[in-house]
Design a protein around this nucleic acid. Structure first.
Ligand code: MN
Ligand code: MN
Ligand code: MN
Ligand code: MN
Lengths: 221, 221
DNA sequence: AATTTATTTTAGGCAAATCTAAAAAAAATC
DNA sequence: GATTTTTTTTAGATTTGCCTAAAATAAATT
């Protein structure tokens, strides 16, 4: 069950996955632009990935990942986003300086390492950029569900989940009259402390701290 | 000042360093055995490392790392041992299952990553196997200085350092009459809790917990 | 000192990943 | 529908790291 792919193959698979998300299928030219390489190099790799059963590809046609390929892509993305979360939350990196390093760390494939890292980080659901982190089975929150911290001003949303079940968190949510299903609107965001002012119907506007916003997940309305 | 070496080149440099430690200089045959490769492949790489100024090498002679090569070796070893420490102390790996993973993580070269990891781990001086971790300048405790946790029964030693300056630690050391310079002998080791019984002259035998032994560094006598 | 043995290097080749230039196919335009 | 343009693939090289087999050198034996 271990796939044993080269760093290059993994980077190709991840790139195909991300381009698919945007447009359903991918072309040689688009992929070569994304990877900053030549179309000829891409064609070489496409044949290789097809031979390994990871890509559905016929010459001159658009292509997409096979089910196996998609599963591997999600493993790589899981590693990438977990490491990003680690770098920001534990090593005090800025969210804008983690990508390059995660681009390397994502290729350390030990399943045990990744699952233990996930546990150490308390199973985060979103990376520092607000992108969902696949769990150990490749499942992740739908992209509609995002951390409250990433909503723009004026956005209306409904609380769908909290990433933490501690009594401290539940106490705070009770005090602010916030529950799963609560509808709210972002009134303002303050860069000084990254706090957010939100409006809940029939209540006074209230302030959400950076810490709280980070663990509150909502779907936009 | 960034060296930008391949994983293979880094593994060669590290192997040369370790073999040098044992015997002062290295031969093609010995290195090929260590890296499980052929002497011909080693010769190829030796020429490449010489061309890069990392190795002092003349055909048919023994060779050793240049000052630059040594510095790079210490950076790789620093990364390897810091990751091993991280895996054991933060991710709850067993000390016997970290080497393979660290063998991969050591090649992620970001200086910022490594120094922040070091800080996050509180600047550990020894890895889980008792080997010293070079600091950000490549300096490390002499191999004579080891954690008390790694001394065999019957060994006499003298306390040389503690890896932590907390008041809690100093309080405990005061209570046990242990100072820098204190001479002791290991009487027994208990695998149940990894505690150690030591004898200090003119005092009753006393028990050192696993936690305390881990931060007490000694030189053997 | 001559011969045997061990070590090391060279020569030539292979696989992976890349490139440039040319050919083939598909898409867009007239 | 024919022609131009774009996209994609193929052909042939290059670089890195590795191999085997043969040649060169050094070390050990007699
Ligand atoms: Mn990558
Ligand atoms: Mn991200
Ligand atoms: Mn390694
Ligand atoms: Mn170690």
């Amino acid at each position: 069950m271990q796939s044993n792919l080269s760093v290059t193959e993994e980077n190709y698979i991840k790139a195909v996955y991300h381009l698919q998300q945007a447009s359903g299928s991918v072309t040689t030219n688009v992929l070569s632009a994304k990877l900053v390489t030549t179309p000829a190099s891409v064609t070489d790799m496409l044949k290789k990935l097809k031979a390994k059963g990871l890509l559905l590809y016929e010459p001159y046609k658009v292509f997409c990942l096979s089910p196996t390929g998609s599963k591997i892509a999600l493993e790589i993305i899981r590693r990438h986003r977990l490491w990003e979360y680690f770098l920001v939350e534990k090593l005090a990196f800025g969210w804008d300086e983690v990508h390059e390093v995660a681009e390397e760390l994502e290729h350390v494939g030990s399943k045990k390492l990744v699952d233990k890292l996930d546990q150490f980080l308390d199973f985060p659901k979103f990376d520092p950029h607000g992108d969902p982190i696949p769990d150990c089975n490749g499942l992740m929150s739908s992209v509609e569900q995002v951390s409250l911290a990433y909503l723009p001003i004026g956005q209306q949303a409904q609380v769908t989940a909290v990433s933490n079940q501690s009594t401290e968190l539940l106490e705070l949510l009770g005090h602010k009259h916030i529950n799963i299903g609560t509808r709210l609107e972002v009134l303002a965001k303050f860069s000084f402390d990254n706090s957010i002012e939100v409006k809940i119907k029939d209540l006074q506007p209230l302030n959400i701290s950076e810490q709280l916003a980070g663990v509150l997940f909502v779907k936009t309305l």
